[in-house]
């Protein structure tokens, strides 16, 4: 089986400071991988390198494209990479306002990716937008409302709808539940889990919330100071961490 994403030796430096160093792993179709670590551990740098938002200093991010099979996205042309990020990839930002157009209605936000890939039938676009709003549990009656009138949880769900409407195969998520109430988090997590299962999505989720990865991720990578210090099955890493830092991380979580 060909990995959907094959990350090889990704390194990113900020001057003398290491963002992330020599990270490698394979992600297979349908797999969800969590990346945890404290602030500054390099997890967001890594995510941005993989998603094409940052150019790594070394390494490859090989994605199994529909057209040409496995292709290094770091060296592919920018138009190709941007096309990928509109079609096969999705990126869910921590802050919904980074991932949404706040001045555009919910329907327009969801429809943008469709129009970006060439859909030109207003009725169809609107129909699909309404369908996706329902799928992320937003009343389709709010299709013409702007996201500024939505709650934080709704904005985050709208961001997910906007990203998934073109049927991507890989979703990058940066702290998707950060800043949300616990009750809202649970709803979002359940939604994401259902979508991952029903659409057969692969996902890479960066978070510092161990409960989030336990619920969503099949596999886990623990990062510290730019390095991956431990990786494995999510429940194995959380329940039987081997590295000193992972043990500290797991034991630091307050039990409710």
């Amino acid at each position: 089986m060909t990995p959907l994403l094959s990350v090889k030796g990704i390194t990113k430096r900020y001057g003398a400071h290491i963002g992330c160093a020599d990270v490698s792993f394979d992600l297979y179709p349908g797999e969800v991988m969590g990346i945890v670590g404290e602030s500054g551990s390099g997890k967001s740098t890594l995510l941005n390198c993989m998603a094409g938002h940052l150019v790594p200093d070394a390494g490859q991010v090989v994605f199994d494209t529909r057209v040409a099979g496995p292709t290094d996205t770091v060296t592919m042309s920018e138009p190709e990479r941007r096309m990928l990020s509109r079609t096969d990839w999705a990126f869910v930002h921590q802050h919904a306002r980074d991932g949404l157009r706040m001045g555009v209605s919910a329907g327009g936000n969801v429809g943008e990716r469709l129009m970006a890939v060439g859909e030109r039938h207003y009725g169809d676009i609107r129909g699909k937008a309404a369908d996706w709003l329902e799928r992320v549990e937003i009343d389709a009656g709010r299709i013409d409302d702007r996201p500024t009138t939505f709650s934080g949880g709704m904005q985050q769900r709208l961001q997910i709808a906007r990203n998934l409407v073109t049927g991507p195969r890989l979703v990058f998520m940066d702290e998707p539940t950060g800043g949300l109430d616990v009750s809202v988090q649970a709803r979002l997590l359940d939604l994401v889990r259902g979508l991952v299962r029903d659409m057969g999505l692969s996902a890479i989720i960066v978070t510092h919330d161990l409960a989030v990865v336990r619920l969503l991720a099949d596999r886990l990578m623990v990062m510290k100071s730019g390095h991956v210090i431990e990786a494995g099955l999510t429940d194995q890493v959380l329940d039987d961490p081997q590295h000193a830092y992972s043990q500290l991380l797991v034991s630091s979580v307050l039990q409710v």
Binding site: E78, P79, R82, R86, R101, G103, V104, S105, G107, G108, G111, E112, R113, L114, M115, A116, V117, R120, Y122, I125, R126, I143, D144
Partner: peptide, 30 residues
């Protein structure tokens, strides 16, 4: 729709014009 000049230039160079239709979409929906 996209106030960043750096971004709009890139959109022109890469022919990413979906956003233009978003404006028309908003018109119709409104």
């Amino acid at each position: 729709l996209e106030p960043r000049e750096s971004e709009t230039r890139k959109m022109h160079s890469l022919e990413e014009y979906g956003l233009m239709h978003v404006k028309l979409y908003e018109d119709i929906s409104c």
